[in-house]
Structures are given as C-alpha cells and as structure tokens.
Simulated assay, not measured.
Amino acid sequence: MSFSSLGLSAPLLKAVAEQQYTQPYPIQQEAIPAILKGKDVLGIAKTGSGKTAGFVLPLLEKLQNTPQSRNRYINTLVLVPTRELAVQVAEVFKGLSSHLPRRIKTLAIYGGVSINPQMMVLSGTEVLVATPGRLLDLLSSKAVHLSEVETLVLDEADKMLNLGFEEEVNKILSLLPAKRQNILFSATLGNEIEQLIKGQLHEPVRIEIQEEAQPLEQIKQLAYLVTPERKGPLLRYLIRQGNMPQVLVFVSATRTADNLVAKLTKNGIEAAAMHSKKSQGARTEALNRFKSGKLPVLVATDLVSRGIDIQQLPYVINYDLPRSPKDYIHRIGRTGRAEATGEAISLLTPDDRHHFRIIQKKMGRQVEILETNDLDLQGS
C-alpha cells in the first residue's frame, strides 16, 4: 500500500516524499482513511509506530477544505502530556503542511516558560498542540477559545492520565462542543482509558497494532554486572571503548542525572541532563543538540522515555533500571525504531538482579549479563 492510495492530495504526498516516508505503517493505513471520513478513532499502538503522521496527515487534508476559523477560536486541538511532545507534534504539522496552498498555522503551548509570548503569537492559530495545564491558563485569560473546536486529539492518553492530568483533561473536555471528531491514541488500554472512551468517543473505529517480538529483535540487548561505586567509570569506559557517537542514558532521579553529567564532563565526555527540574529552554536546547548529533550524551529521567522521536539513535543505556518492565521496553524502544537497528545496555548492581529477571520474564527474552570485575576501569 502507498500513501497515494489513502486519499491524500498532491501537496501532502509531496511533503510525505520529502520526509522520506516510503510506505504507510499499519496504523497509518487504518487511521488516515477513517479520520478523512470524519470518524472517531481509537488507536492503541506503541510509541514509534507512526501514529503522529497517522493523524496529522488527514487533519491537514481536512483543514484545506475548511474555512479558516475565527481569530483565537481553535479548529483542531491536540492534547499531549509533555512539553517535548507538544513541540514534536507541532513540528510534524508544520513539516507536512509545507506545500499546502492555504497556510495553516500550528502552535505548541506548554508550561515552564512565560505565558505572555504564547498569548501574543496565538493569533491566527488553527491547530493548537497543548499540555493541559498551560491550556487552562490561557483559557482563564480568554486568550483562546474552544467553542468552535471541530477535532480533538488526545495523544499518549495513558501517559496523560498517569501523570495526574485527569482533572485538567476533564475540565477541558467540558468546554468543548458536544459535536466534534475525537481521536485518541494510547500505548496501553487500561480502565481509565476505557472510561474516557465511553464518555467521549462515539462509535469509534478501533485500531489496535499488536506489539510483536520483531521490533525488540532489532535491538541488541546486553547487561553488565557492576558494583555501585564502579557504575560511573563503567559508563565512561563503555562510551569510549564503543566509540558511541550518540547515546541516551536513563537514570532514576534528577540528582543522579546532574551528578552523572558533571562526572562525564569532568572526564572529557560532553553531556547534558534533561529532567523536570531543568528550565524549558535548557531542555529544548539539550534535546535539539542531541537530535542533531551535536551532543553525544543525553542523560535523562523517564520524562523522555515515550513520545520523543530520535531518528537512528544507536545506543540506549539504563544507568538505573526503571520501575516496571513496561517502562524498560519504552526506554529501549528509543533505539531500533522504524526498522533501524540499535543497542540497549543495562548496568546492574547485585541488588538489581532479581528485578532484571522479572523484566526479562515479562519481555519474554533473555539478556546476556557480563561480569565486569576483570575490566580495568582506572582512568575511565
């Protein structure tokens, strides 16, 4: 199947070709025609399955045939859980709309930065990509209006609810027109999502892309057993010995991230931290530098374990194990995306071994664990 068979116009097909999308992913094959028909859609698919383009392309197509909305009255609202995802989704809208005959303004809004500049640039916005809290701030200031929203997208809905946004989301939903198109994407389908579906979606087209073993087969997994005091030197040793050009390192706490970056930098390895206590400007700069290849090491908490698309990322290292097997899969899924290969490494202390056995059992895959006692880490 090709994108041209999905009902998209020539300007969008040209943008698709420029983005080097060769053929639609399964979720795109099902979502694009359904959204073009005005159907409500429920999509259950893991991060990295192509769902963003799956809703962006048909929504841009529809907007081309829709009169421009009144100033500050939004036509299409996309709710997302994190600032980084808001920026990323907005970039996809902008990139895929580059050849459309009618300009469609897309804006990302999020907290952590001054609200005044966002209020000033809202004028003329048709597609608003927003985190719930900042959207409510703008609504209370009457800087934006939702009474003419025709399409609502809830992206990464499960994470939005897990992060405690349920009250904010419900408040926003109460301000939307009853008659609208609803599109909900989620990596998982729990009780909270089921309740949301019952209350908001009308006879949705259900698209469930089953997670298969094949994506994990593209990721080479390896673990190293190490004492806590040797974890830092081992990390530096692996980065240097492996000549890793780009590596995403996951830690469990913001303090660990900052301390690790300080040690890496002190030892001549350029790195930056990305976590919730960093300013939005610092987070955006670090992520942009990392994605462009200018920053070799990004040390992050689980803030970026889902919803961030880093093309061709070769290495992920779990400096600390995540709490759940599901989070482990989301983390290592930052590499080996979209048919690329990648390597995921975990640093295990003796206390981690039981938890790692549980992760392997849930994942259905054994990971080789190497001893490091004989490695000379002096000078690393």
Rank of each mutant, 00 (worst) to 15 (best):
E371Y: 12
K326R: 13
K46F: 09
M119S: 07
G133R: 07
K362I: 07
H330E: 03
I32A: 06
P81R: 05
M363Q: 06
Y224E: 04
G111F: 10
S147Y: 12
P350C: 08
L135G: 04
Y237C: 03
E192H: 12
G43W: 07
K278Y: 04
D40N: 15
R206Y: 08
T151K: 06
L79S: 03
L100F: 09
D351C: 04
E217A: 11
L79F: 11
V16P: 00
I172R: 02
V129G: 01
H275I: 08
N259I: 07
E371A: 14
Y25D: 00
Q312F: 15
L146I: 12
P11D: 05
V249K: 05
G342Y: 06
N267Q: 10
M244D: 02
Q246L: 13
S49Q: 04
D309N: 03
Q23M: 10
S279N: 09
G379P: 05
P325Q: 05
L59V: 03
R255P: 01
E150K: 15
R240F: 00
G242R: 04
K94T: 06
L77F: 09
M1T: 13
L146D: 05
H330W: 05
A178Q: 14
A187W: 11
H330I: 09
L260P: 10
F3K: 04
N288E: 14
L100S: 04
V149S: 03
H145E: 09
P24R: 04
A157K: 08
T131D: 01
E203F: 13
L201I: 10
K220I: 14
T125G: 02
L59Y: 00
L189I: 11
I115M: 12
L12T: 08
L96S: 00
P132R: 12
Q88E: 03
Q29A: 08
G342R: 05
E368L: 15
I207M: 03
I27G: 01
F165R: 08
D320T: 06
Y224N: 04
N243Y: 12
K277E: 10
P350A: 07
I104H: 00
R240E: 00
D258Q: 15
E368Q: 15
K198L: 11
Y237H: 14
K159P: 02
I358A: 11
L128N: 01
I269G: 00
K179L: 11
G232S: 14
R283A: 06
A86V: 02
G364K: 11
E339F: 13
S147C: 07
L79E: 03
V249L: 04
R331E: 01
N191T: 15
T47H: 08
Q181R: 13
R306C: 01
L313P: 00
E229N: 11
A344F: 11
T47L: 04
G50E: 01
T372W: 12
G336A: 06
L225P: 04
L295E: 01
D258Y: 13
T47N: 06
N373Q: 14
Y237P: 01
A45M: 06
I359R: 00
I197V: 15
P177H: 04
P24Y: 03
Y25L: 09
M274R: 02
I197M: 08
D374K: 15
H355E: 11
L13Y: 08
L161S: 01
S4Y: 08
V299R: 05
K51H: 02
A344E: 02
A223P: 09
L375H: 10
L189Q: 06
H275K: 02
I219S: 01
P233R: 07
A108M: 03
A340I: 06
